[in-house]
Amino acid sequence: MITLENISKTYGKGPQAVHALKPTDLHVAQGEIYGVIGLSGAGKSTLIRCVNLLERPTTGRIFVDGQELTSLGRQELNQARHRIGMIFQHFNLLASRTVFDNVALPLELMGVAKREIRERVQPLLDLTGLSDKHAKYPAELSGGQKQRVAIARALASRPKVLLCDEATSALDPQTTQSILELLKDINRKLGLTILLITHEMEVVKSICHKVGLISGGKLVEEAEVGDFFTSPSTRLGREFLNAFLELDPPQALIDRMEARPGPHTHPVVRLAFTGDAVSTPLISRLARECNVDVSILEAKVESIQERTLGLMIAELIGPQEKTQQALAYLKSHDLQVEVLGHVQRNA
């Protein structure tokens, strides 16, 4: 539905040039919710703004619904933009228009007749839960309600694609969830393809099917969301995941941790369980079969879409050959083991 081919964006020329986006390919399938995640300044905003050519890419081609946007003239591009909805971090509603008139705006721009506008706006207000707010002005609405208006407005022209530029970044966590639910709902009901950019893992976890990780203007990792949350393949991906899961050993332990094992140390490990491993009582078996003590420092279970992810930070306590054996045991049981460091016994 959306294909970016070798897209890049450079601002300025010569030695002062800023490469906001390095040559990047991206494909979003029909009906998919694709999330691009990255830190601020990573180029994700440039990327999404290139899709509807709010930003002209320096190189590359863009296809939306089979049409090459980069080859279109001004007028044709405006026509094509009617089929691409977009919502923004700061909503960008017209303060001078009521909720109803804001949602009607794209239809007015398309030259839709007044009567038809009325018929088309009302169902959108129902869909976004704004029926009772149609005569209000944006200043009278909360942030979440404003974004609902923006979503209704973006859907008014019956687009095939919805672009979400940090759509929940200005909202509190609860409102974020309700907006995400709405987007998910729209995706299911209307079969709308959604490309979103965000810096929040929560957004990716809640609604995305696929995720792309962007850093330094490059797409460094791309995966199904379930895979990304269980086994990110890049260091940045792991950092994002760990920051999101907030699963790090206690600071006091980190301070004592050494990189290499010594004669009297035992390992601190981070374990990630997926699939069958989640429901298997591995730790008690480990203790029994390898004869080591396991001290659990932190643990949590996350459900990511239909998959369950168990996470744990633990010390394996025992003689070195036993702990080595325990590590081998864990690795053989379909779970990811990362040795974070080693701490002195009885320290």
């Binding site: 405006n78 933009r81 009617h82 960008n92 509603l93 705006l105 721009l109 398309m110 022209s157």
Partner: peptide, 14 residues
């Protein structure tokens, strides 16, 4: 706010 102009552009406004 420039965002409003941008939003209108994204809707295909002339």
């Amino acid at each position: 706010p420039p965002g409003l102009v941008e939003a209108a552009q994204s809707m295909g406004a002339t």
